[in-house]
Design a binder for these strands. Sequence first.
DNA 1: CACCACTCATTGGTAGTACCAATAGCGCGC
DNA 2: GCGCGCTATTGGTACTACCAATGAGTGGTG
Lengths: 262, 262
Amino acid sequence: MSGDTNLKVPTKTRRSASGDTTDRLRRAILDGQYPVGSLLPPERTLSETFGVSRLTLRSAIAHLETEGLLRPQQGAGTRVLDYRTSAGVDLLGDLLGLSLSRGSLPAELLGDLLELRRMLAVEVLGLAAERGAPEEHRALREHLLHQTSLVGDAEAYVEADLKMARMLVCASHNVALELLSNSLARVLVAAPSLAPAFLVNADGTLAAYARLLALVESGDGMRVRKEARCLLEELDEDTLERVRALAPATPAKTTQHLGGTA
Amino acid sequence: MSGDTNLKVPTKTRRSASGDTTDRLRRAILDGQYPVGSLLPPERTLSETFGVSRLTLRSAIAHLETEGLLRPQQGAGTRVLDYRTSAGVDLLGDLLGLSLSRGSLPAELLGDLLELRRMLAVEVLGLAAERGAPEEHRALREHLLHQTSLVGDAEAYVEADLKMARMLVCASHNVALELLSNSLARVLVAAPSLAPAFLVNADGTLAAYARLLALVESGDGMRVRKEARCLLEELDEDTLERVRALAPATPAKTTQHLGGTA
DNA sequence: CACCACTCATTGGTAGTACCAATAGCGCGC
DNA sequence: GCGCGCTATTGGTACTACCAATGAGTGGTG
C-alpha cells in the first residue's frame, strides 16, 4: 500500500478500521459521490482509495448491504441502492449523525423520528393498559419513582428512561414491538448529541409519565391512547423546539449546555 | 456435521457459505446451544466446528452482531446477548423463518407482527389523509385499480400490494416511517411461506383498501384512523385464521391446537 | 499475608495473497 | 447476422501471518 499515513495517530478514539471505513463509505454514498443506481468501483480499487485492506473494505460493504444501501453481485459489481426505498430503520441513526456531523440540523428528520416513536408509544401504552399484568403496572410505577429521583444525573436519567420504555414495551406483550423498540433505542444512542434535548424535558416528561401511568393502570386502553396522543405530541413539539434552539453550526465542543433554556 | 454428502454439489440452492454459516450460527444461538450471557467459543474453534474458514465465520459473527445477537470484544471473546433486549426488527424475519423451518407455527409471533404492521398502517393512513397531496391520492386510487386487475396473478399481486404500501407510506411524508416500512417488507420476504395467507384475503383486502382510500381522500385523518383500526383488525384476524389453517404441513403427533390460545 | 505491577497466553481485528465462482462483454466461427 | 464460447472483470472464500486488547496468572514489595 502507499506508505503515506501508515503511522496512524494513536487517538484515544481508536475506532475499529472496519467501522471507520463503513462510516466513510456510507457518507460517500449518501453524499452522492457514488450515484444511486450506479456501480461502485471494484473492491480492489476502493480498498486502495480508502487506504484499507480489501478485507476491511469488504466488511464495510457487507455492513452497508445489510443496511440496505448496497447490493453486491458476484461477477457483476456492487450496485448503489436508493436508501429511501431499500434501507431499514437502522439507517435512521446514521442519517441523523451524518446531518449533525455536517453541521446541518436534521430537524425534519428528527421530527419524523419523534412522530414514529410517538405513534408507537401511543399503541404501546394502550396495549400495556389492556394486557399488562397488575404486577407489571406496579413495577412501572415503582420505576417511575426511581427515575424521578435521578433528574440530576444526566446519564443515569436517560438510562432509566430507556428502561422505562423497555418495561412499557414489555408490558404490551408484543415481541415485534419489543424488537422495534430496540432498533429505535439504537438509533437514539447513535446520535448522542441529541440527548441533551431530551434531557431538559425531564420535568414535563415525568409529569406526563405519571398521568399516563395512572391511565394505564385503569386499563382503559382507548382512553390511554387518546390522551397519550395529545400529551406526547406536546412533549415532542417541545423537544423539537429545544433542538432547533441548538446553534446550527456547533460541531463538537459547544454542546451540552442547555440548562439556561429551562 | 460435515459428513453431509453435499460437499461441493452445485445445487441450485447454492447459498453463499457466509450466509449459510450465519443462519446456522443464529439457529444454534436461538436454540440455546450457546446460552445467553455466555461467551461464544473462540473464532478459531468455531470455524472448525462449522467447517468453514475463520474469515467466513467472522463474517457470520459480524452479521449477527449487527442483528444484535452477539457482541464481540477484542481480547475478551464474543458474548451471546438476549435477543429480546438487544436485537432489532430485522431479526423478526429470521425468527419467523426459524419457527417455520422447525415445523412449529409461529402464530403468536406472526400475530405480534401483524399487530405492529396494523398500528403503523393506521397512522400511515391518517397521515396520508392529512398530508398527502391530491396527486398522491389520485395515484393511489389509480394503483388500486391496477392492483385489482391482478387478483389472478399471485406474484404480480403481492408486488403491487407492496407498491401500494410504499405509495401510502410515501404519501405520509415521513422518512422514518418509510425506512421502517422497508424493514417490515424485508421481514415478510424473509418468510415467503406465509405469502399464500396474505393472498387469499385479496378480495377483502381490496375492498378495505377502496373504503380506506375514499376516507383518505376526504382528508379526515382521525376518521381514517378510527375506521382503519377496525377494518384492519378484522383483516388481520382473518389472515391469522388462514395461517393457522396451514398447519398440516407437518403431521405432528401432538395436536397442533393453536386455535384455542385466544 | 495482602496488595500492586508486570508478564504473557488467549482472543478478536487487520493485512496480504492466492484462488474459486459468477457475470458480462467481446470476438470467433457458423 | 446470429449464436456459441472464450475471457477479462468482479465479488466470494480460503489460508497465513501479524497486531492489539483483554484478563488471569505470577512474581515482587510493603
